[in-house]
Write a protein that binds this DNA or RNA. Structure first.
Length: 599
RNA sequence: CGGGGCGUGGCUCAGCCUGGUAGAGCGCUCGGUUCGGGACCGAGAGGUCGGAGGUUCGAAUCCUCUCGCCCCGACCA
């Protein structure tokens, strides 16, 4: 392309709306323009980048036997009602009605549609496995779109789905996808980690999240410096040093603790206890039901883990007034000993959804007759501990969990801290970093095939639900991560595998006929050699051209300047900002060698 | 949805508090001088001040409503 005719609307200044680096650079480099919140138009150069990424996606999907489909983005509500997600998913789904007033939606993912095809067409185990994918637009009405390409309301996704006859087949399909994903992100020049993550509302037994390390990311990842353990903080755990408790008294002993409100207060209170010898009691409303969450005094609750463990979709700390009614005490004196004996003839009070903390009259009576007690695994087997007595300004000591507390469920609920011991290896400690999700692979199992009736006959002639997996990569996320990880003060430094052009030929002075002709010829020679070249033939001063070339981040720049008289041009490498003189006769093969190396 | 901020030429912003002929820099057009890291001089084009209503002799400025965008939180396959 000739820059003079190609549409690259670069900006000299940072756009006012952009905060994160990738967003600023996407706008400044003339790659995208905003249409609305979370909605962006691709300019021609961005489209070239996206096409190169999609090509990599296709190659790697095809390599593992993937077959490319193209499914509709507009869906009738029926299929979503069958899977149950028409109701389960809230406002995040764009919904609309057709002229006959029938419910429709814009596709936010395609499990339902692919499963529809599978159940109509797949009959026998002999047809399996199938690996199906597409590259297509998705719509999600995010509550808060943000940071340019980081969280969009309409974006391109490569989504793949696998169909197997059994669990072992799924394991193989999942492993294939995992390998393909590793190749994809490596080829795109992205530094990534594979982490354990919560599956959320996708359902399924196991998922791996692919994340790119960047401070602009929204996720926190704990990873071991010594081994390959890495997990999203909502799932991460760590190894605890075992605690040896002294044998306590026959029964808990109540003692007065005037003024003690916090775990910390109790550590300094005469006759108190160390943090790790206390039981932290949190009152929560979990899916509208009262619950007590027990943790070791020095541990913090990781709320996503609470949701995963309880199977709930929503939780919140209980309000003061709720707690007072449940336990007859204030926060700071709460405990689980005897809590399950508490009776409320009209049930426990649960605030209405629109409850405001200062409006006690909005309280409604909940149906629950008992408190659910969920305890963190770190409390297992502990004894001689201290906790609140459910009586203001009093605590209990000598609490033996197994003997004194009726725990309904044990679970890993505790969040990890940087410096904690790795749960997988012996020596490592965990460090926590920010990252953005760029891909996610799920073992779905039979969630969709069962709800939607997709079965095949086994070798025994028995119908079994197809075992599915689902795998997604966001194209814009790859673009964003690539920029976040590869830029400097002057602009983007594209990994050469996804750069919009391999090389830019910069003619320093278009009014100099010799330079102009040399540039024109070199441009054609590069194209003939199979390289994507951009010829900067604008009537601009050299400085402007250099700044723009740096900004848009083409990996190599050939500068045509005065040294042409000696048969020399300059080869500039964007990533290192170094340049060397190269003979005009050798420049094409030189660039070719560099641009194609390692591809 | 809660909190905060912002809508003025293509871009970045000033003007608003204290109402009185709409400004600057960059970009754009034309002429000239320049020509290897965002040149300089001169002359121009370009704005319903997000929208609607109100107050006023007079509104970018004050008031009300409304639309949109950004950030934090909540939320999120």
């Amino acid at each position: 392309m000739r820059w003079s005719q190609y549409f690259i609307p670069t900006l000299r200044e940072d756009p006012a709306d952009a905060e994160v680096v990738s967003h600023k650079l996407l706008l400044r480099a003339g790659l995208i323009r905003q249409l609305g919140s979370g909605i962006y138009s691709y300019m021609p150069m961005a489209q070239r980048i996206a096409l190169r990424i999609m090509q990599i996606l296709r190659e790697e999907m095809n390599r593992i036997g993937g077959q490319e489909f193209y499914l509709p983005a507009l869906h009738p509500a029926e299929v979503w009602k069958e899977s149950g997600r028409w109701e389960a998913i809230g406002a995040e789904m764009f919904r609309l009605k057709d002229r006959k007033d029938a419910d429709m939606c814009l596709g936010m993912t395609h499990e339902e549609i692919f499963t529809t095809i599978a159940r109509n067409e797949l009959r026998s185990y002999k047809q399996l496995p199938q690996v199906w994918y597409q590259i297509q637009v998705k719509f999600r009405d995010e509550l808060r779109p943000k940071s340019g390409f980081m969280r969009l309301r309409t974006f391109i996704m490569k989504d793949a789905y696998t169909f197997d006859v059994d669990k072992a087949g799924l394991d193989k399909s999942f492993a294939d996808q995992r390998e393909a994903y590793k190749r994809i992100f490596s080829r795109c020049g992205i530094e990534y980690s594979i982490v354990e993550a919560s599956s959320g509302s996708m359902g399924g037994s196991e998922s791996n999240e692919f994340v790119a390390k960047t401070d602009a990311g929204e996720d926190l990842i704990a990873s071991c410096a010594n081994c390959d353990y890495a997990a999203n903080l909502e799932k991460a755990t760590s190894r605890l040093a075992p605690v040896k408790d002294l044998v306590g008294p026959e029964a808990p002993e109540e003692f007065p603790t005037p003024g003690v409100r916090t775990i910390e207060d109790l550590t300094t209170f005469p006759g108190g206890a160390k943090e790790r010898d206390q039981i932290k009691t949190l009152a929560y409303v979990v899916d509208g039901q009262p619950a007590l969450i027990l943790l070791r005094g020095d541990h913090q609750l990781q709320e996503i883990k609470l949701l995963d463990a309880s199977g709930a979709t929503k939780s919140r700390p209980a309000y003061r007034a709720e707690i007072q009614q449940w336990l007859g005490a204030s926060p700071g004196s709460l405990g689980a000993v005897g809590a399950n004996d508490r009776q409320h003839p009209d049930g426990f009070l649960i605030a209405a959804a629109d409850f405001a903390p200062n409006q006690v009259q909005l309280f409604l009576s909940g149906g629950a007759k008992r408190l659910r007690i969920i305890a963190d695994d770190a409390l297992k087997g502990r004894q001689n501990m201290t906790t609140g007595a459910n009586k203001d300004d009093h605590h209990l000591r000598g609490v033996n969990i197994a003997r004194d507390i009726e725990v309904n469920q044990w679970a890993d609920l505790r969040g990890v801290d940087s410096g904690d011991s790795c749960p997988r290896c012996d020596e490592g400690t965990l460090e926590i970093f920010k990252a953005m999700e760029i891909g996610h692979i799920f073992k779905l199992g039979t969630k969709y095939s069962e709800s939607m009736g997709a079965t095949v006959l086994t070798v025994d002639g028995k119908p079994v639900p197809i075992v599915m997996g689902s795998y997604g990569i966001g194209v814009e996320r790859i673009i964003t991560a690539a920029i976040e990880q590869n830029h400097d003060a002057d602009g983007i430094i594209w990994p050469k595998t996804i750069a919009p052009f391999d090389v830019v030929v910069t003619v320093t002075n278009m009014k100099d006929e010799k330079l102009r002709e040399t540039g024109e010829k070199l441009y054609k020679d590069l194209m003939r050699a199979g390289l994507d070249a951009l010829l900067d033939d604008r009537n601009e001063r050299a400085g402007v051209k250099f700044k723009d070339a740096d900004l848009i981040g083409i990996p190599y720049r050939v500068t045509i300047g005065k040294k042409v008289a000696d048969g020399l041009v300059e080869l500039f490498t964007r990533a290192t900002k170094t340049s060397e003189d190269v003979k005009l006769t050798e420049i094409v093969s030189q660039v070719q060698k560099l641009a194609l190396a390692g591809l």
